[in-house]
Amino acid sequence: MKLTTTQSVLAELLETAKNGISTRPVDPILGSLLIEASDEGRLTVIGTDLNVSIKTTAITHILQAGVVALNAKLLADTVNNLGSGELDIEVSERTCVISHSTGKCRIVGGNPEDFPSIPETQNCTEITIPSKKLQAALEACLYCCSADETKLILTGVHFQLQGENWSCASTDGHRLALVSSKLEGNYSPISFTVPRRSLTELGKILSTTTENSSCTLKVGNNTVQFILPNAELTSRLLEGEFPHINHLIPKSFANELIVERKGMEIILKRISHFAEKKHKIVKILWEVNDQQATLITGNTDIGDAVDSLLIKTQTSHRRKYRYWAKQRLSTRSTQAHLNR
């Protein structure tokens, strides 16, 4: 393999692909990136931990096609510390030599034939979602996924499509987030759950996309592919039945309270230092008649804090009530609607 590329292009490819690698790979080859150079002038870099795979590509000057598997951390650290400019890369017998303006370095690689292949999605359903709409949906849902791996299905985000309606939801058993929107097209009913880690890495890729770009989803029985202009992410799907969240959200409420979001965030940050460190519980007293919310928290070892802000009410019964809430989520459930 022999090619010429720029330091910035190669560094960007490596930075994206290495996010698919586990911090503690179970096999040495899983700590490597597979680098392929094609006769068509396409440079491809792949990283995987067997559950999620990230593939990135770029057009560059290929002099000789080939493939090599190189240690991800060593390669990324090496390229990131090179000066900007052109790099000449030559691979012979699993050894990669990178020549730059002031010198060169040599990296000994592994056997590319030992690198696992990315699973192909068979009998798939294709869905097209605007990249920025998908990014916004993930930002609204990912924080509600459970971090407890024993909860299995709750460690992911659940997608549902029917006709032109699309939604994704997550819950850890205490909090719930739901995002709904409409798409162009008419899709047959389909639902699937994607692990949080896969979507976290997808979110990083989506943040680099342009405003008008789209993401194509290929959903199979066990895997899903997210295809973007210069990157592809393949993930396994979680098995099991996701909770029927629509049954958990009340259809009507005795009180509707409107809170200025920024003001609530500022108060929570201000008093959070006094909250008990493990559970971070904040007590909220909703004084409906006075149109005021009072936030109270404390720790017997360090002290306590009280703060308040004005609220607007749309109520059928005006009364005073209180409940306990997590610091990060001040209501029992949140529903976000993206109508872009």
Rank of each mutant, 00 (worst) to 15 (best):
P250R: 00
L257T: 11
G263I: 00
G263Q: 13
T234A: 08
I267L: 14
S272W: 00
S272T: 02
A275L: 01
L257R: 03
N221L: 14
L268R: 14
S252R: 09
P250V: 01
A254L: 12
H273E: 01
R236T: 10
S272I: 00
G240E: 06
K269M: 01
R261F: 04
F253W: 08
G240H: 11
L233D: 08
P243V: 04
I227N: 14
E239Y: 05
E260A: 09
H247C: 07
I245C: 04
R261E: 09
Q225T: 11
K251D: 11
S252K: 11
R270D: 13
I227R: 14
L268W: 03
E265V: 06
F226M: 07
E239G: 11
I266E: 12
L248N: 03
H244P: 04
F253R: 00
P243K: 03
I267A: 00
I271Q: 08
P250C: 02
R270K: 15
E232G: 04
A231S: 15
T234Y: 05
L257F: 06
N221V: 08
T234P: 09
H273N: 08
I266R: 12
E241K: 14
N222F: 12
F274D: 00
N221D: 15
N230A: 10
S252V: 08
G240Q: 08
L248V: 06
S235K: 05
P243M: 05
P229R: 11
I249C: 03
P229D: 14
L238T: 09
E241C: 10
L268G: 01
N221S: 15
E241A: 12
K269Q: 13
I271T: 08
N246C: 05
I266W: 01
R236P: 03
F253H: 12
A254K: 13
F242C: 05
A231N: 13
H247F: 09
R261G: 10
N230H: 14
E260T: 06
E260G: 03
L233R: 06
N222S: 15
S235I: 08
I266Y: 07
K251E: 14
E260S: 06
H247R: 15
F274M: 15
S252Y: 04
E265Y: 04
H273V: 10
P229S: 07
N255P: 00
A254N: 10
R261N: 07
G240T: 07
M264T: 03
K262W: 02
K251Q: 13
K262F: 01
N246Y: 12
S272K: 03
L248P: 00
E239N: 13
I245S: 02
E256G: 03
K251F: 03
S235T: 05
R270W: 02
S272C: 05
H244D: 15
G263Y: 02
N246V: 03
I266V: 12
N222G: 04
R270H: 07
L237R: 04
I258C: 02
V224K: 07
F242G: 05
E256P: 00
N230M: 09
V224F: 07
F253S: 11
E256M: 06
E239Q: 13
N246D: 15
I266L: 09
N255V: 01
L268Q: 11
K269Y: 00
R236Q: 14
M264G: 02
L237F: 06
H247E: 15
R270P: 01
L233N: 06
K251R: 12
L228S: 12
R236M: 13
L237N: 05
P250K: 02
L228M: 15
L248E: 07
L228W: 13
N221P: 01
I249E: 06
E241T: 13
I258E: 12
